[in-house]
Computed example of a mutant assay.
Amino acid sequence: MSGEATILHADLDAFYASVEQRDDPRLRGRPVIVGGGVVLACSYEAKARGVRSAMGGRQARRLCPEAIVVPPRMAAYTAASRAVFEIFRHTTPLVEGLSIDEAFLDVGGLRRLVGPPAGIAAELRERVRRQVGLPITVGVARTKFLAKVASGVAKPDGLLVVEPDRELAFLHPLPVERLWGVGPVTAGRLRERGLRTVGQVARLDEPALVSLLGGGAGRHLHALAHNRDPRAVQVGRRRSSMGAQHALAREPHSPAELDAVLAGLVDRVTGRMRDARRTGRTVTLRLRFADYTRATRSHTLDKPTAQTAPLRAAARALLRAALPLIEQRGVTLLGVSVGNLDGGHTQLTLPFTAEPGPALDAAVDAVRDRFGSRALTRGVLLGRDPGVEMPRLPD
């Protein structure tokens, strides 16, 4: 690992709400809530009134009656994300996307060509603001963990560089919740022992943390409390599944509210799948209950797809089946993933059957002209490859 702070964690601020404020000048400077039944996102003006993502809509409106509630526009958010990631990739080829609105970037090899990491981060922020019209916060550090912590501390719309000689001085005064993997249950256990800051955790030896939290969690937190994180920025990793999740407030949620969250998650996942030219067959619903226990439910489709409708239908069926359990135990997190991903074929749909001859040859040429020549064959158009569907041809 480099001895210099060369890893950037770039995180768009209140992403969905910022896109809404960018696109509608009347919303700028005002509290904005995206999503009605459940808060999918909110502007910093709404956060200042206590509104939080995953909060129920009624509670959010009680906290901030003057908030403007807008429906989510996933296509707009996807387009903005693509534009920002183009800037990331223009900055460095070493980009590891974490979600639609955040990524790690490794700029360690750019000092001679471009300048120091702090200057690269400042230029990246300026380009995102100028070209995409959105605020973005960047943390810069020697490790991925600390870069992400730095961006969280610097929000909103900030830049924070943690130099190697002051890493622990920056990290140790922070609350234990800043450590990856410390949720309410783990934080409660630590606080019961009087451990409220990262520095207090760091002063415990590893066996003591293992005794308190278990082997994996104890070793993990001991390493992070000393900023030991050897992971490199990973580019082009081939995933076996793609997913998204959304935390929910502990209050009861209606089936309609949960369905709205689920639909947004499926939209997000299928958009990423199409961008990556991946298709999948197995839909998995992930649930975290109010007592912090978890459950998963899965369904495998007959054939792989990246289209939203069939995957959303499968996810909704899983959610409907789980509703009695949710009603009994409450739910604090909803997640969706699609697994059994293929090797990278794009799913397509053919609205006609064709026979060999000039008409079929013309159809092949038309499809290739529009979608490229990668793997369109007469056999596919004739339906001899049942695992691939073709695009609708232009009129």
Rank of each mutant, 00 (worst) to 15 (best):
L393M: 14
A249W: 04
A313C: 01
S211V: 00
A46F: 12
M242A: 13
A375Q: 12
I7Y: 10
V34I: 04
T270M: 06
R384L: 15
D205A: 09
L105K: 12
P356T: 14
R286C: 06
P25V: 03
L393N: 06
A249C: 04
R73H: 00
P386L: 10
D13G: 12
A60L: 02
D369S: 07
L319A: 02
G339W: 00
A80F: 02
T137K: 13
G243T: 13
A359G: 01
P116D: 11
V69T: 14
R378F: 00
R368C: 13
L159R: 04
G339M: 07
V198A: 07
A247P: 08
G3N: 12
R312M: 05
S373C: 10
V283P: 00
D101R: 10
R193K: 15
V19R: 13
M390P: 10
E192H: 14
M74R: 14
A75N: 09
A187W: 02
A263G: 05
P394H: 14
E163N: 05
R89T: 06
L213Q: 00
L98A: 14
C42G: 02
L179D: 15
M390Q: 08
G36H: 04
P230M: 04
H172K: 06
P391C: 07
A48W: 05
T279N: 01
H172I: 11
A295I: 05
L265K: 10
E4L: 01
I136K: 02
G108K: 00
F145H: 15
A247E: 05
M273F: 10
A154R: 03
L213P: 00
L311V: 12
G330C: 06
I120D: 00
N340Q: 15
A46I: 10
A354E: 14
A202T: 09
R272D: 09
Y292H: 15
M273P: 15
S151L: 10
G35A: 05
S211G: 09
K155P: 07
L113D: 14
V39D: 05
T300Q: 01
F88C: 13
G344A: 09
E206K: 04
